[in-house]
């Protein structure tokens, strides 16, 4: 990560400090994201403790196969993202670009799997509302949280994919050099979205097979 990799902007005194500042900034932002999801997980915890029986019944209907497949996909994507970072540090341009594209593709694959899962859920009548398939009524709470959690996560992932694609286009066109501050920031964000998914996986899919 050479110093010439990034343009020095106001108000930073030097490149090193600017890079450090950007990482600091994204970490602060990730803290706010944790609280954002934290409110959602708290909601899950409270409702599960109020309705243990309904949550047991409801979580049996989730599909562990889709969930596990997606977990593997996302974990692999994080690995590739880290590889991209390392390879960029060694200045292997083509490989770094490939890694970024693989990362974005794995993200897309996740969304595709998610899409199949959603259509399965819909056909099983698992969208809360008047035609909801399960009893008692509080099973709807679980499925309400299922949809909200996964959709909010998918939106985050979509943003992540957009950022990775944008970064690889800039690198491919040589607008920015390898190993910019932006790539460090984006990779931190990507890993964060991955960690959120692991929590969602534990809350949504695993109770059903326990």
């Amino acid at each position: 990560m050479s110093d010439s990799a990034t343009i020095l902007r106001e108000p930073w005194p030097n490149i090193e400090r600017q890079r450090y500042g950007a990482a600091f900034g994204i970490w602060i932002f990730l803290v706010t994201e944790m609280l954002f999801f934290g409110a959602l997980f708290l909601n899950y915890a409270v409702n599960r403790s109020l309705h243990p029986e309904a949550f047991r019944i409801a979580s049996h209907e989730t599909d562990i196969v889709y969930g596990t497949a997606n977990t593997l996909i996302l974990l692999t994507s994080s690995l590739v993202m880290t590889l991209a970072e390392r390879v960029a540090a060694a200045n292997w341009r083509r490989l770094a670009l490939t890694c970024l594209i693989v990362t974005a593709s794995l993200g897309l694959a996740f969304l595709v799997v998610k899409g199949f899962e959603y259509s399965d859920d819909l056909s099983k009548g698992l969208l809360p509302g008047p035609n909801f398939a399960l009893e008692p009524p509080s099973t709807q709470l679980f499925w309400g949280l299922y949809w909200i959690m996964t959709v909010v996560h998918a939106i985050h992932l979509t943003v992540g994919i957009g950022l990775v694609v944008w970064l690889s286009v800039l690198i491919a066109r040589r607008v920015v050099p390898l190993g910019t501050t932006a790539s460090e920031v984006i990779s931190l964000y990507w890993h964060f979205v991955d960690v959120i998914w692991l929590t969602v996986y534990a809350l949504i899919y695993l109770p059903g097979v326990a």
Partner: peptide, 12 residues
């Protein structure tokens, strides 16, 4: 229509 706080579905 996601039931989150709706007391009719047991929400709090």
């Amino acid at each position: 229509g996601m039931p989150v706080f709706d007391p009719a579905q047991g929400g709090d």
